[in-house]
Design a protein around this nucleic acid. Structure first.
Lengths: 208, 208
DNA sequence: TAGTTATGTTCTCTTTTTGTTCTCTTTTTG
DNA sequence: CAAAAAGAGAACAAAAAGAGAACATAACTA
């Protein structure tokens, strides 16, 4: 797998990253066009190298034609590119209950960012008026700072994790629920550690 | 099931994605026309391959011919296992604005069902109190019936599509918004056609 | 009832697509 | 510079796709 030339690596990466752009497994001609190459024969040599490396399905016995990634190559891609780790649940008042076996969830592109993200399941009703319900999944971008008005995962006193609106000033931090029955809490900056910022949310209506 | 040629798969995808456009299961000639083909005999070969693959029901034996999809076909053959077709936007007061080039969105398993589903983007605030906001994506299970209390995609008078809670009795149908500023509408059963039921919802906090 | 139409089925023939193999040229790299 | 890598492009064979004619038969029509 390491004896690929730079160009072969490049072509494989392109294939891996743009595979869904093709409605069907691309033919040599289609890939040529997508890569801006003019010669099918030249591309053929590279694809043969990728087949030898086990990254691409061999053509022989491949009746439908087209270049297909190996199951292996696809899995690797799915695990890191398409899916996000499902870390656990976040309940108001308790630290994040981490899962031992990290699962991965497929998440639509539009709900992700280009920075590292993970998924949490919400427990509690502290954000209902922001449209985040008990049982929803939230996609969190991992970072330690936030703008005022963003919804953040905050760790309070190194022990309680919670999902709230944040308002920061020089001497204090406000964590504001979206629920008329609850009140905002005020902390000193050193009591609150931002663990991530909400960038996406998902809900299932089936499970009851 | 995988030994389809590219064209065969293309034709199957077309059939699956446009099946509702045909009033009756399409004949070979009708499908020819829809596909822009000139020869019935050529299409026949492809359909035979789809029948052999178990994706399509044979047309003989039935009083009225026509090509119908097998039940299994719908669910098993998405462009990508994890993806659902993104059909368009749904706004209160207008029919679903269909997209020409159907995109597919990766969707987590937990938001899907084993029946055919598609994705719509919500326009308008009629469901805010149910936690469904303007711009959210909703996952719809395609079916023509619903239980009372479910959130449905309803086509009113064959012209307006809308997302609402439904309450049905023998002689009338109520479509109820989740917004205190709006009122429920009452219809006769024949005025309302259920096009699907809400089973999932997604929101991005980035793009605005 | 006889004829017309719609629809599925079977052919043959042609065209297009696609993988494959060459040879030659250009570019990159140590 | 020399070797390796990349590319262009021609040529070829097999597979796939398509056109179109011909036929069968069931349903419908005048």
């Amino acid at each position: 797998m390491n004896d690929l030339t730079r160009r072969q690596r490049e072509i494989f990466d392109f294939l891996r990253d743009n595979y869904e752009r093709f409605a069907y497994p691309p033919t040599l001609d289609a890939l040529c066009a997508a890569l801006g190459m003019a010669s099918r024969g030249s591309l053929y040599k590279h694809i043969m190298a990728l087949i030898a490396a086990g990254l691409v399905e061999p053509f022989t016995g491949n009746k439908q034609g087209g270049i297909r990634l190996t199951a292996q190559a696809q899995r690797d891609y799915a695990a890191c590119e398409h899916s996000l780790p499902f870390v656990g649940k976040i309940a108001a008042g308790k630290p994040i209950e981490a899962l031992e076996n990290v699962n991965y969830m497929a998440v639509p592109e539009v709900l992700k960012s280009d920075k590292p993200c993970y998924v949490l399941q919400v427990q509690g009703d502290s954000m209902v008026e922001a449209g985040i319900f008990d049982g929803d999944w939230v996609i969190i971008e991992q970072r330690s700072y936030a703008d005022n008005g963003e919804i953040v995962v905050a760790l309070i006193e190194r022990s309680e994790a919670t999902l709230k609106y944040i308002e920061q000033s020089t001497d204090k931090v406000l964590l504001i629920p979206a629920n008329s029955n609850m009140t905002a809490m005020t902390y000193r900056p050193e009591q609150v550690e931002i663990q991530g910022v909400l960038i996406g949310q998902m809900r299932s209506y089936r499970s009851h």
